[in-house]
Simulated scan of single mutants.
Amino acid sequence: MPEPIRLGSNAAMAAIRARLERRGIVLPPAGPVDDAPNPDEPGHPEYHRRARAEFALTRWHNAVPYRYADAAPIAAEPRIGAWAQRVATKPSEANSLLLTGNTGTGKTHQAWAALRMIAEAGPVDYQLIATTAADLYGRLRPGGSDQGTEHELRRYTRVPLLLLDDLGSAKASEWVEEITYRLINERYNACKPTIFTSNYTTEAPRDPETGRVLGPGLDIILGDRIVSRLAEMTTVVVMAGRDRRRAA
């Protein structure tokens, strides 16, 4: 008895082709089968990355102030781009970013550029709140929000991505220190990436010979327990140069 022909085998296909040819039906030569989607079709990772990026960029454009709508990262600071890429791929492992330097050196511009880079990478979850320290404290003071202080503080602590501009610019007080500590400590514990900008370094500048304090630092303005967390959770990028606003 002849060996049975297995369906789908080369012999089975040859037998089917021979029968069809006897009936005058000629099949074209079989080519390679490629059922994998291309980058322009649903199912391909690049297709879905582009869709996420389009959605994230819409949110970025809705949030960015008009002055920074053309924000782009400067080539001289690859650490900003590297941090943004880490946030886009593994936000819980990216840590945070502290841009420090004198007034007018482009810290806020670069913060918005970093947020744009994250959006363009197509992250899975792109939710952000951007605020200045002054506006943050204003909303968290009694009467600053109809929702109440605790509700507003939860928004800032839980949002996946936060930009806090001009850290250390508010007048020092026990209340400011406590609110700042609660915000930073919550985000530190949850490993949520944050961009801070500040005119101050984390440690107050001191005379190398006498140790005398030469000016304020975030450790003096906000306290050691806040700065200790900032030191661990942030990549510090110093923005050098002259005040660009006055130069313009």
Rank of each mutant, 00 (worst) to 15 (best):
A111D: 05
Q110G: 10
S145C: 13
Y156C: 08
Q127L: 08
E152T: 13
P160G: 03
A172N: 12
A172R: 15
L161D: 11
K107E: 00
V176N: 07
K171V: 15
L98Y: 10
L128M: 14
V159L: 10
E186W: 01
D166A: 04
P142A: 08
L167A: 12
I184D: 02
N102I: 00
G148C: 14
A121F: 12
L163D: 07
R155H: 13
A119H: 12
I179Q: 15
L161P: 12
Y181V: 04
G168T: 07
T100N: 02
K171A: 12
K171I: 14
G101P: 03
G143F: 15
R182E: 15
A130W: 11
A113N: 03
Q147W: 04
A111Q: 09
T105E: 00
L161E: 12
V159S: 01
G138Q: 08
G122N: 13
E174L: 11
L99I: 07
N185A: 02
T105L: 00
T132E: 03
S145Y: 14
S173E: 06
Y126A: 07
T103S: 01
T100H: 04
A134V: 12
D135A: 11
Q147S: 06
L115F: 15
I179G: 01
G122Y: 14
R158G: 03
L99Q: 08
D165C: 08
L98G: 00
S173Q: 08
L136R: 03
L136H: 02
S169H: 06
K107V: 03
D135I: 00
H151Q: 07
T157S: 14
L163K: 01
I179T: 14
Q147M: 12
G106Y: 04
D165K: 12
R141K: 14
T103W: 03
R155C: 11
Y137H: 13
G106M: 00
L153E: 09
L162Q: 03
P142I: 10
E186Q: 07
S169Q: 12
